[in-house]
Each structure stands twice: as structure tokens, then as C-alpha cells.
């Protein structure tokens, strides 16, 4: 059963990953592959839109932890947007909001990247 998907699109020159469904230890590799693809293409300004992300377990959080240093050392960032409260609570429990840009809306992330 396919309960997760990640799609890539480009908006205002930034790479955006749209996450759909449930991100757990089984589906995390799909997100990992998508992030690796972008990094291999030297895309370091990445927005992850979580509006259709219904669930996240620590394996999903681990993917964001593994690649943030790479993109930041290239002058970029991974910004997370449009999270529902349930998903945000998991990030919050582990202290992500102090180390990651978690923004209300995709446009906030685009503005943050553009105004640097």
C-alpha cells in the first residue's frame, strides 16, 4: 500500500518538495532520495511543503537532520512550511523549531530566501 509520496516542483527559482501522506521508517527513504537528488544537482535552497503531510515519525525527522548541514554549508537551507498542528507537535517535542525554519506558508519561505 502506497501511503506516502514526494513531488518536486520549482517556484520562483526555488526547489519545492511537496510531501503527501505518512512519513515513517518505511517511507523515509523516498524523502531521502528526493533530497539527495536536489543536493546532487547543487540545489541548496529547498522548501519542504508539508500541507498534505498527515503523519511523521522520527525516521522522517532523521532525514532532515542528515542533510541540513550539507545545504547550509553551501549557503542554502531547508525550510519547512504549512505543517498541521499534529505534525508540528512532533518536531516541537524534539526541539526542531530552534534549529530549523518552520514557517506558516510557502510564500514566507520564498520571501526569506529572496530577502537574504
Amino acid at each position: 500500500m502506497k501511503n506516502f509520496s514526494v513531488k518536486h516542483r520549482t517556484q520562483s527559482g526555488f526547489s519545492i518538495l511537496d510531501l503527501h501522506g505518512e512519513l515513517d521508517a518505511h517511507t523515509a527513504s523516498q524523502l531521502e532520495d528526493a533530497l539527495k537528488d536536489l543536493i546532487n544537482q547543487n540545489r541548496s535552497e529547498i522548501i519542504v511543503n508539508c500541507s498534505n503531510l498527515e503523519y511523521i515519525a522520527s525516521a522522517g525527522l532523521g532525514v532532515f537532520m542528515a542533510y541540513i548541514e550539507d545545504v547550509r554549508s553551501d549557503g542554502g537551507d531547508i525550510k519547512l512550511t504549512n505543517m498541521n498542528d499534529k505534525v508540528y507537535n512532533v518536531f516541537d517535542l524534539l526541539g526542531f523549531p530552534t534549529l530549523y525554519d518552520i514557517l506558516d506558508d510557502e510564500s514566507d519561505a520564498i520571501n526569506n530566501f529572496s530577502n537574504r
Binding site: M1, N3, E22, D24, A25, H26, Y55, A57
Partner: peptide, 8 residues
């Protein structure tokens, strides 16, 4: 891990 969604 393909059974995790069934567990949930």
C-alpha cells in the same frame, strides 16, 4: 517496516 501503517 512496510507493516508500520497497519500497526498504526
Amino acid at each position: 517496516t512496510s507493516n508500520l501503517s497497519e500497526v498504526r
